[in-house]
Amino acid sequence: MAYTLQLTVKKIEHETDTIKKFTFTSDEIPLPPFGAGAHVTLHLPMGKRQYSLVNNPLEMKNEYVIAVKKISDHNGGSGYLHECIGQGDNISVSPPDNFFPLRTEAKHHVFFAAGIGITPFVSMMAYLKTIGRSFELHYAASGERECAFHRHIQNHFRSKSTFYFMKREEKIAKLKKALQNRTMGTHIYLCGPPAFMDILLEHSHKLRYPEKFIHEEQFQPAVLIENPQPFFVNLVKTKKTFMVSSGQTLLDALHEIDIYVPYTCRMGVCGTCEVEIEEGDVVHCDSFLTEEEKVGNMLTCVSRGIGHIKLRL
């Protein structure tokens, strides 16, 4: 099983009225390094929550810094961090993972952020500035007051940043325009609410940009099942049968009966937990497998069987 780090909350700062910046550190261990675009997983009483790191990976001083927007009461992850966590508290954190890395082959990086989606780009821009690479930021927010890292961006990346504080329709039109006429060597990165991502993704398809040049950050499965149902699983090689309950993932159920399937992201992004299907219908919730691959394979971290399925395990 993956290990966790016991970190201390060193500092909490107000970034906006609803966004707080948390700095974690340890006096006992050197924190593992990370790449620009990486995130950490916080182990909170209500479950695991992922947050992008906002510090510059090349200037990391044994600290992880995240920014969290309060979108729930204290029963949710963000509300808990805002209301129940204070300076000096301890928190369990999984070491950084990076499913949203910068593409080293790019000659120019273009970032599109909306709201709290700015966080991975704060780290990426600091990194690119340090190594002297070309980038630009397009950042949509409801207003300057609600715009996280506004002053920081103005101070450090002013000439490379465009802010979009206007009305929604005008904002969308301008963002679409900013996406147009891009040239070879450009890689485009999107992070923000699903509606924002969908609009820009759709527009990039319209512009016929190949998918390999467009990158999006995901912290949840591509498909969310509102009311997950239990299902039965037969493992044809190890000859085991078990049930996956409605509140459980297939990956967890497999680990419970000591069938170790490797995993990393738990969001249907990385493909590590892929298994072969022998028989049965599956609701695929990942963003990793192609339509052809989904015929005989599934990702156990997010996808679920219907009724009874057989796996080649």
């Binding site: 040239t183 450009t186 940009y209």
Partner: peptide, 9 residues
């Protein structure tokens, strides 16, 4: 010739 070719060329 190769300069500023549209993304995806």
């Amino acid at each position: 010739i190769l300069k500023d070719k549209p993304l995806g060329t």
